[in-house]
Structures are given as structure tokens and as C-alpha cells.
Amino acid sequence: MTDSRARFVVTGAGGYLGPHVVAALADRGHEVLAVVRPGSAAVTDPRAIRVEADILAPDFDVRSWGAPQGIVHLAWQDGFVHNSPAHLGQLSAHYRLLTAAAEAGTSRLVVLGTMHEIGYWEGAITAQTPTNPLSQYGIAKDALRRALPLALPPETGLAWARAYYIYGDDRRSNSIFRKILEAVDAGKTTFPFTSGKNRYDFIRVEELGRQLAALAEAEDITGTLNCCTGEPMSLADKVEQFIAENDLPISLEYGAFPDRPYDSPGVWGDATVIREVMARG
């Protein structure tokens, strides 16, 4: 466990997930450096120290962050565009940044991973589940996950935190929930949908932020683990729940799109480790 008040750096602090991680770390009493891109219009938590930097530039010096206890690395271009050329094009820059941070003395790295490292799978995903990514995004993330442990010094603790189906703060996401809200904005009363039978591990973005903040403190937890609920739910049930909770005047048009053959009928994370971390308070 870290000191009661430590300094943490959060990269990608202006993205979809970043503000929630920054807020969760600040809620836990830590000093937070919220790193955003130069010129970013993103609003950062007033409790954090805002830092604008191109962290993937070859000349970026991680020592400008001082001596943080840990780094929560969320920054990743085109995270919602799974076959963007940026994923593999920037892979070495992420590797360079994180290995340089470790060499500069950062003792804790929490790096955001993804269920897309696995590829097609049915059932619970554990740390031992074999990976076979089917997108540029999944390939790049999995390559970084495999490479970092071979390069980091033994005194640097790495937690690779796999995320699942994130929702909440939906206007800032690129999920089906945002698309439904936009359809309502446009005056539509139906939304074209698949069968919705596929089951996923849905986690609110605020809860994911809290899990990552707790994981940043848990220095004894290393390796690959899941940040998730561990409780699969069908896409249809989740979307219907979202429509009802928000009292939206729209209904799903089931069967308008065929189910994709490469989507798993059901996939979720084994939440054993993250539940133990969260139970520490």
C-alpha cells in the first residue's frame, strides 16, 4: 500500500476515462498530475495539477513529472477506432515512455488494457486466458502487455488492467448508449439493433475509475488482471435498462442488423482479484 498521500500521474486525463481516474485518486487524498495533450480543451479536476505535454514525442522527458509514486497510463489515440493505423504506429512510443518512467524511478505502473487482447472467447477471461487479438487495437495492446515485463526493472511493479464494456458519461463515449441518445436528439423513435443476445461485462466509467485508483495504491498486485464486474448481462437487457432508466422515447428494432459471427456469445472478466483490491477500502 502506498503512503497516505502520494503523487500519481494520470496520462490521458482529458479522455473518456481519465477524468474519473483523476477524481478517484483525488478523492483518496493523493496529489494528481493530470496530463493532457498540448492545447487540449478538456476540463480537468481543480484538485489536480494540470500538465499539457506530448508524452509520445521522442524528446519528452518523464523526469519533468518529478518523482511520482506511480503512473496510471490511459493515453491511447483512437481507442474507439479498432483498426486505426495509430495503434501499431505509436506502440514503440508507449513502450519508450513507460520504460523511461521506470528507469527514472517510478515504482508503480498501472496500464490500461482491453478485453480485445483476447479475441474470440466464450466465458470468463482470466490472467491465463490465451490471447489472439483480431484488431489492430487488440494486437498493439497485447504486444505492449507482453513486452513491458521483459524490459522493466524488478523494483517496478506493473499492473496490466484489462477493461471491458465501459458505459456512463455517455455523451463523451462512442458507445451504443451515446448513439441512442443522439437518435433521440434527432427525433427518432426506433433504433436499429441486432438480436442483442450477446452477453458482456458492463462497468460504469465511474466505477472503473475507482478500481484503477485503488489498483494504483495496491503495490503488491502485479501482472494481468481484470477491471470489471464479473457479471455478464445481455446487450439487449442492458440497452433496455438504459432506455428505461433515462425515460427515453425510443424502442429497439430487433433484427435490423444481423449478429456478427465473430462476436462471442458471452464474455466477461474474472473479477476475483479486483474485488479483493476494492475490499481493502
Rank of each mutant, 00 (worst) to 15 (best):
P153C: 07
I118V: 15
N132G: 09
D169H: 14
R162G: 01
L98S: 07
R162Y: 01
I139N: 00
V111D: 03
L97N: 06
D170F: 09
L91N: 07
Y164R: 07
G157K: 14
T156R: 08
G119A: 05
E182V: 08
L112C: 13
L112G: 11
Y120W: 14
M115Q: 14
Q136S: 14
H116S: 10
Y95P: 00
G113V: 01
R162L: 01
K179Q: 15
G157R: 15
A104Y: 12
S175M: 11
G113R: 02
P153H: 13
L97I: 05
E122P: 00
F177N: 11
L152V: 04
S175R: 13
R172E: 12
A124T: 09
A159H: 00
I176A: 15
R172L: 12
F177L: 12
A143R: 13
Q90I: 00
R162P: 01
I125H: 07
Y165W: 15
W160K: 06
A127N: 08
L109R: 06
R96H: 09
R162H: 00
A124K: 12
E103V: 10
I166A: 12
A143E: 12
E122G: 05
I166M: 15
A101Y: 11
A100Y: 12
R178I: 00
H94N: 06
I118S: 02
R146Q: 13
R178M: 03
L112F: 04
G168D: 08
G113D: 05
P154V: 08
L91V: 07
L152M: 10
R162I: 00
K179I: 01
H94L: 05
E182S: 11
E117A: 02
Q136A: 15
A100G: 10
T129A: 04
R171E: 14
W121V: 03
F177G: 00
P133D: 06
E103C: 03
E155A: 13
I118R: 04
A161W: 04
A161G: 09
K179C: 06
P130E: 04
P154D: 13
Q136K: 14
I125A: 06
H94I: 03
Y95W: 14
R172M: 06
G105A: 06
R145V: 00
L181C: 08
T156W: 04
V110K: 12
R146L: 05
Q90D: 11
A163D: 04
I118Y: 00
P149L: 06
A100P: 00
I118K: 02
R178S: 01
M115T: 03
Y95C: 02
R172Q: 13
E117V: 02
I180C: 06
A151V: 01
E117N: 08
I180M: 13
R108Y: 05
L98W: 09
Y164H: 15
A151I: 03
L91Q: 12
T126S: 14
P154I: 09
L109A: 03
S173K: 08
T126Y: 07
E182H: 14
A102E: 12
